[in-house]
Simulated assay, not measured.
Amino acid sequence: MNKLLLLFIAVPLVEMVVLIKVGEQIGALSTIALVILTAAIGIHLLKKQGVAMLNQANWKINQGQIPAKEMAEGIVLAIGGALLLTPGFVTDAIGFACLIPISRHFLLGAVLKNINVSPIYTHNSKTSFHQPPEQSKNIDPQVLEGEFERKK
């Protein structure tokens, strides 16, 4: 919690220092125009990337697949859009990194490698976050056994 509080204090202070330094170099009106320009470009990129992401997710759903990657990238896009709408050059740089596909994949990979996901198993109407006792430890965790019925 303390890291989050520090982040909420440090980011605006850094943004103010950067805005003041840029304003000293190019002038106040030019700095304001540049902040508005980066927001406009960011909104355009966000719309373009968001539509592409929704189309990809829709295609996966139509193929019977779960669009998990697209959902995660959608969250990164939303964060990037919020950062681009926040006035400042540091948040704009991070926001643009969230919108550019190559850097978005890099950021997402860096975040996801630090997340430990436990599968949820349901047995006899009880939900468990641990592996069922009847399964052996030697079973490949990438294989999910079960039954399904295709409904048309």
Score class of each variant (00 low, 15 high):
residue 51 V to A: 03
residue 27 G to W: 08
residue 43 I to M: 15
residue 73 E to I: 05
residue 63 Q to L: 14
residue 129 F to P: 02
residue 27 G to I: 07
residue 15 E to K: 12
residue 148 F to H: 09
residue 72 A to N: 14
residue 101 P to M: 00
residue 59 W to I: 15
residue 33 A to S: 10
residue 27 G to C: 06
residue 120 I to E: 05
residue 12 P to C: 11
residue 116 N to H: 10
residue 37 L to C: 10
residue 40 A to T: 15
residue 128 S to E: 13
residue 129 F to V: 04
residue 92 D to N: 14
residue 37 L to V: 07
residue 45 L to E: 07
residue 42 G to S: 15
residue 70 E to T: 05
residue 8 F to W: 06
residue 5 L to H: 02
residue 93 A to F: 12
residue 128 S to R: 11
residue 75 I to N: 04
residue 136 S to D: 10
residue 46 L to K: 06
residue 122 T to R: 14
residue 74 G to P: 02
residue 17 V to H: 01
residue 141 P to V: 07
residue 44 H to E: 04
residue 145 E to G: 09
residue 85 L to S: 07
residue 152 K to P: 01
residue 151 K to R: 12
residue 97 A to V: 09
residue 112 L to K: 13
residue 143 V to A: 13
residue 22 V to Y: 03
residue 19 L to I: 09
residue 33 A to N: 04
residue 46 L to Y: 15
residue 51 V to I: 13
residue 95 G to F: 00
residue 89 F to G: 05
residue 13 L to N: 02
residue 55 N to P: 00
residue 143 V to C: 13
residue 129 F to A: 03
residue 109 G to T: 13
residue 37 L to K: 10
residue 128 S to N: 09
residue 34 L to K: 02
residue 146 G to F: 09
residue 86 T to N: 03
residue 71 M to G: 06
residue 64 G to E: 13
residue 80 G to I: 01
residue 69 K to Q: 08
residue 82 A to S: 10
residue 97 A to I: 04
residue 147 E to W: 11
residue 48 K to W: 10
residue 59 W to M: 15
residue 91 T to E: 09
residue 78 A to N: 02
residue 103 S to K: 00
residue 44 H to A: 15
residue 16 M to V: 14
residue 150 R to W: 14
residue 67 P to V: 08
residue 141 P to Q: 10
residue 151 K to W: 13
residue 116 N to S: 14
residue 13 L to A: 08
residue 104 R to S: 00
residue 76 V to Q: 08
residue 40 A to S: 15
residue 62 N to C: 05
residue 59 W to P: 02
residue 90 V to T: 09
residue 26 I to L: 12
residue 107 L to V: 02
residue 45 L to M: 08
residue 74 G to D: 05
residue 49 Q to S: 11
residue 93 A to C: 09
residue 43 I to E: 14
residue 33 A to Q: 04
residue 50 G to V: 02
residue 7 L to R: 11
residue 51 V to D: 01
residue 57 A to D: 04
residue 73 E to L: 13
residue 101 P to N: 00
residue 36 I to S: 08
residue 32 I to L: 15
residue 25 Q to C: 10
residue 2 N to G: 00
residue 131 Q to D: 06
residue 139 I to S: 07
residue 120 I to Q: 06
residue 144 L to Q: 04
residue 148 F to P: 01
residue 53 M to A: 05
residue 87 P to K: 00
residue 88 G to P: 03
residue 86 T to F: 06
residue 18 V to S: 07
residue 127 T to I: 15
residue 45 L to C: 05
residue 8 F to T: 04
residue 27 G to P: 11
residue 113 K to Q: 15
residue 39 A to P: 10
residue 117 V to N: 04
residue 127 T to P: 02
residue 124 N to Q: 08
residue 7 L to I: 14
residue 134 E to N: 13
residue 111 V to K: 03
residue 31 T to Q: 12
residue 84 L to R: 07
residue 147 E to P: 00
residue 145 E to I: 07
residue 2 N to Y: 04
residue 74 G to V: 02
residue 138 N to T: 02
residue 118 S to F: 14
residue 90 V to L: 12
residue 62 N to A: 06
residue 76 V to S: 04
residue 42 G to A: 14
residue 52 A to I: 06
residue 96 F to W: 08
residue 124 N to I: 00
